[in-house]
């Protein structure tokens, strides 16, 4: 009797842990998007400028050590928004500088985000062959 309950408790805790991961991801990602939405609606910044702002602030916040905390809390909620792109760029460059020294300044950033960019390029090229933009008349 007791051991079974004990196991059940572990199961519940485990489940709660996972659920918390999801909730934290949802909230962190949501908040980062809401900040961008407010910037779009309330300032004259165009979406393109906000994306640049996000990536650059991701790099800077990671460099000063702040964004690491956001990632610890939010998980994918912090890495999937574009600030996370900046986080990857910055982490990559730190690691490469540690490993390769001066050369790492130039290789580290892009190397760490290459998977996403290459995927986008390859998919875009394939998509341009097989699909067409659809008219928006409906």
């Amino acid at each position: 009797m007791w051991p079974t309950l004990w196991l059940l408790r572990i199961e519940v805790f485990y489940f709660m842990d996972i659920l918390m991961d999801y909730i934290c991801a949802f909230v962190t990602g949501g908040v980062l998007c809401v900040i961008a939405q407010i910037l779009i609606d309330k300032t004259k910044l165009t979406p393109a400028r906000i994306l640049v702002l996000y990536v650059v602030s991701g790099v800077v916040l990671t460099a000063v050590g702040l964004y690491e905390h956001v990632v610890k809390f939010g998980g994918t909620g912090a890495t999937v928004p574009l600030t996370g792109f900046g986080y990857s760029l910055c982490k990559g460059v730190f690691k490469a500088v540690d490993e390769y020294g001066f050369r790492g300044i130039f290789t580290g950033g892009l190397e760490n985000v290459a998977t996403g960019i290459v995927m986008a390029i390859v998919f875009a090229l394939i998509a341009s062959f097989v699909t067409k933009p659809k008219s928006k008349s409906r």
Partner: peptide, 8 residues
């Protein structure tokens, strides 16, 4: 726009 899906 902000998630990396928007980048794609």
């Amino acid at each position: 726009v902000v998630p990396i899906t928007g980048f794609a």
